[in-house]
């Protein structure tokens, strides 16, 4: 009985002394040693590097045929840029041969407009979307969840377009496809 009792007291006193020691060290030497220990401790626990994508991109797949009978296709000489107000055009794709393009959507507006030029013929694509911010993580911050409402386009080269998956978030999955564009 006495050994059990004294074991309790010992365990408790050791813990109390440990706490008291930390308080004492903090009070006496707020500088070098404890800060170093704390930094070491915190750096071991938290990870401050964001290794996740925080920019949401729309995946457009090029197709031939119809929605029920669609086949992948590679289009040559594709140039794509977004129509940005008050900014110079910046090419997203420059004369590329692609079967799939990634388009960043505008987080500040309810629609994004792109020009797609193929063999000197241009089509304008307009995508209407609702924007909803969400937290990825406390290290990566916020990203935008886009809900695609509608898609409009001119029909010089493009025959039609279909929304396959209306939710566009920052996490880009391997086989993710949001829009099919038919030629």
């Amino acid at each position: 009985m006495i050994t059990l009792t004294s074991t309790f007291i010992h365990i408790n006193l050791i813990l109390l002394l440990a706490v008291a020691f930390i308080i004492f060290v903090q009070a006496m030497k707020p500088g070098l040693l404890t800060n170093l220990l704390l930094v070491l401790l915190i750096s071991c626990v938290t990870q401050d590097i964001c290794d996740e994508d925080n920019q949401s991109e729309l995946v457009v797949k090029f197709k031939t045929g119809s929605l029920t009978n669609a086949a992948d296709t590679i289009i040559a000489d594709v140039t794509v840029y977004g129509i940005r107000e008050g900014k110079t055009d910046s090419l997203l794709y420059d004369a590329a041969s692609v079967s799939r393009i990634l388009l960043p959507l505008d987080p500040g507006h309810g629609a994004s407009h792109f020009v797609c030029r193929i063999n000197d013929q241009s089509d304008t694509i307009g995508i209407g979307h609702d924007n909803e911010a969400y937290l990825i993580s406390y290290t990566c911050g916020f990203a935008m969840m886009f809900h695609i409402r509608e898609i409009h386009h001119t029909t010089h080269v493009i025959s039609h377009a279909e929304v396959i998956e209306s939710q566009v978030d920052a996490e880009l999955l391997k086989d993710e496809e949001h829009i099919w564009i038919f030629f």
């Binding site: 925080n54 920019q55 977004g82 940005r84 900014k87 910046s90 997203l92 960043p104 959507l105 505008d106 987080p107 500040g108 994004s112 911010a133 937290l135 911050g141 916020f142 990203a143 935008m144």
Partner: peptide
């Protein structure tokens, strides 16, 4: 609450949200 929330966009420009 969260404030000074910035949605990054290299292409369209960063967008700052209202506080939440």
């Amino acid at each position: 609450r969260a404030g000074r929330i910035v949605i990054q966009s290299d292409y369209w420009g960063d967008y700052m949200l209202d506080s939440y």
